[in-house]
Design a protein around this nucleic acid. Structure first.
Lengths: 203, 203
DNA sequence: TGCTTTACTGCAGTGAATGAAGTAGTGCAT
DNA sequence: ATGCACTACTTCATTCACTGCAGTAAAGCA
């Protein structure tokens, strides 16, 4: 047994990586709008059609690394200490996700690129917001499932929405202002703390 | 002088109305994706090119009536009683906007259609989220300007983000659950109340 | 009556995304 | 090893949102 996964899977991951790599490079060089999917595919030396076998849309190549992050957030809630309160669990969840967001992809430079593109490319902003909203929905569902007797569906959505909304808005504002990465993260944590006050009171 | 506005302006508004009308009807009949811009223009008896003179994108026809709503929210903050606290002003702002959302377009059926499309059409959801985010940014800026000495830029963004995030998430959750319009509005108000607890503490 | 402005048209083109049919490398069974 | 199924990928064609440009005709105005 040479490898856990076969040659086929490995090659697939290689072309996927090549696509992400080419996309990051080209987006950085010429900007998002002035880079076509055909360009990316060409640079990765695959057909244009292949791009869409790996990513459903052009924007999704920017989210290549975020799949697992959400799961980790959900896991925090699912694997909670039964004695802990919703407020404690939520605080830890948001903390894990904020930390993860900056730790995950220092290699690829994806996070930095995303940050820049979110600010000045409407299409990207729209898609990322949608993605975040979907993530938020999953977290809210997990919270509701975890405390089924104490937190109803809509309340869970409201609480998680407040948290994520505050963090997202603070992050974009800090980014737009030109804050350095550390400053942005600090803004996110502060926003989370503010929003958590809505929860702390009675959960 | 026959009219306050000329014949030209009136005719323009007529084709705009015809476009919105055709869009609402066709979206309702066949769904969003299965309706092309060409279809809408045809039904409104104008050229396809004309559609884009009135609306920048296909999704924007769904936002035909929301332009003024945001201004009204901003106005509440701008025209505040100087003696009132940020918490009071914010509470009134969100209340005005929630109320407006229902009063504005009961006639056109736009609100109901939007509600349905946001839930099951990803493209629409992305665009509306982006629109809401932009609105939120304007409110946050207005709040910061109004209390320049007490609330910094990022804090304003966090507070408003928490409010809007909570309300939006609650609305979608209630809609998805199949709540009637009244139930949805109640969910939004409850979400706003929850998020306001983050503000009430020290503003 | 002329001159400018503006709502609208027609057309040609870009680029994202999808569908269908086909090729080639890979893994696996006998 | 040979045949077979699977899968990543390609190629071609098509749809559709959206843009730029060159026009027409009506509207407003001198």
């Amino acid at each position: 047994m040479v490898d856990a996964v076969g040659r086929q899977q490995r090659k697939k991951q290689l072309t996927r990586l090549a696509l992400v790599d080419a996309a990051v490079r080209l987006f950085t060089e010429r900007g998002y709008e002035r880079t076509t999917v055909a360009d990316i595919a060409e640079a990765a030396d695959v057909s244009a059609r292949t791009f869409f076998l790996h990513f459903p849309t052009k924007e999704d190549v920017l989210l290549a690394d975020t799949a697992g992050r959400l799961d980790r957030g959900v896991d925090v809630i699912a694997g909670r200490d039964p004695a802990s309160t919703p407020a404690e669990v939520l605080a830890e969840t948001i903390d894990v996700m904020i930390t993860d967001a900056w730790a995950g992809d220092l290699h690829t430079g994806l996070a930095a690129l995303r940050a820049r593109l979110v600010i000045d490319t409407p299409a990207v902003q729209a898609h990322l917001l949608q993605n975040g909203f979907a993530a938020q929905t999953r977290i809210a569902t997990a919270l509701h499932e975890a405390y089924r007797d104490r937190i109803d569906e809509v309340t869970a959505a409201a609480i998680v929405g407040a948290l994520m909304g505050a963090v997202a808005a603070a992050a974009v504002t800090a980014l737009r202002r030109g804050d350095p990465p550390d400053g942005v993260r600090a803004a996110m944590r502060r926003a989370a703390a503010i929003a958590m006050r809505a929860v702390d009171n009675d959960l």
